[in-house]
Design a protein around this nucleic acid. Sequence first.
DNA 1: GCAATATACTAGGACATCCAAGGGTTTGGA
DNA 2: TCCAAACCCTTGGATGTCCTAGTATATTGC
Lengths: 168, 168
Amino acid sequence: MAAPLPRDPIADAQRNWEQHGWADVAAPMAAITAIMRTQQILLARIEGALKPFGLTFARYELLALLSFARSGALPMNKASALLQVHPTSVTNAVDRLEGSGLVARSPHPTDGRTTLIELTAEGRIVAKRATAVLNAEVFGQSGFAPADVDQLIRILGAFRRNAGDFTD
Amino acid sequence: MAAPLPRDPIADAQRNWEQHGWADVAAPMAAITAIMRTQQILLARIEGALKPFGLTFARYELLALLSFARSGALPMNKASALLQVHPTSVTNAVDRLEGSGLVARSPHPTDGRTTLIELTAEGRIVAKRATAVLNAEVFGQSGFAPADVDQLIRILGAFRRNAGDFTD
DNA sequence: GCAATATACTAGGACATCCAAGGGTTTGGA
DNA sequence: TCCAAACCCTTGGATGTCCTAGTATATTGC
């Protein structure tokens, strides 16, 4: 781990923005930059927790999504939509998960264009174990105060809705 | 742009967590997942705004950092520390920015191991213009309420300090 | 003073993301 | 009915991030 900096680099950036005549957008700039950095920290923790399973976050998300599907299977385009990533990213994740024997591709019964992805027995087990580890090591020790978690869910939920993620 | 989903997929995930006996970590899971998704949305906006300049966010951050340095130059390791990214990422960004003529490498006057990166005249101009566009198109239209911006800065600032980013 | 350790940068590899383009399958309007 | 438009998935390319390893230069300690 890199040594801590003596000062918050984002707070410094915010001050720089204010001193260069961009005070009106200095705060949003700082908030957005902080989101970028926080994502980086969280992603590193998540990947670290998943490493023993040979999983990355992208692959884990797909496994978790499938494990919650009633039938344990989903069309690729559906997975792409729900995970909100590009179809090619799903193709990539499925290729690797299939190589590890955690999911399997199967043709859609009625639509020849569609491919279904399905959890294998081993995939279901790995998904469960990986979730347990993530819950214990990452989500359970996020470092966010409960009240702040609620704030984040509210603020980011509104942002995502506003960005067109969902209409709910 | 993908069509909006009828329901918030993260709220769904949170419900799934609660129904599977992980209610104690369902909220932090949702908050963290929301941060990941929000980062993705913001990054896409930023990259879109920077595209006309032939810049990516990683390269822009380096340009902006240099533009605020007193001398307009910084050692690579210093840039790596301040941007909080791996040294190889800085090498990558500098390679490309150097190729575009926006920065230049020069040897450190006293330490033979160190390489200084310096803004070129054109680099300084591009940094200024790109910042103006980012301020206008992204930071100035974040969609976050002012009070929420303050909340984000506070919550994520505490998180980053707690994660060891800085000691300030 | 010199060897051992530490630091700085870069090369190569693994992954993830997106975009653009291509080939196969369905759907829908003329 | 039939062909064009729409849709689905995959391939190939560009970028970014990190890790590991290797080379070169500094610093430290005996």
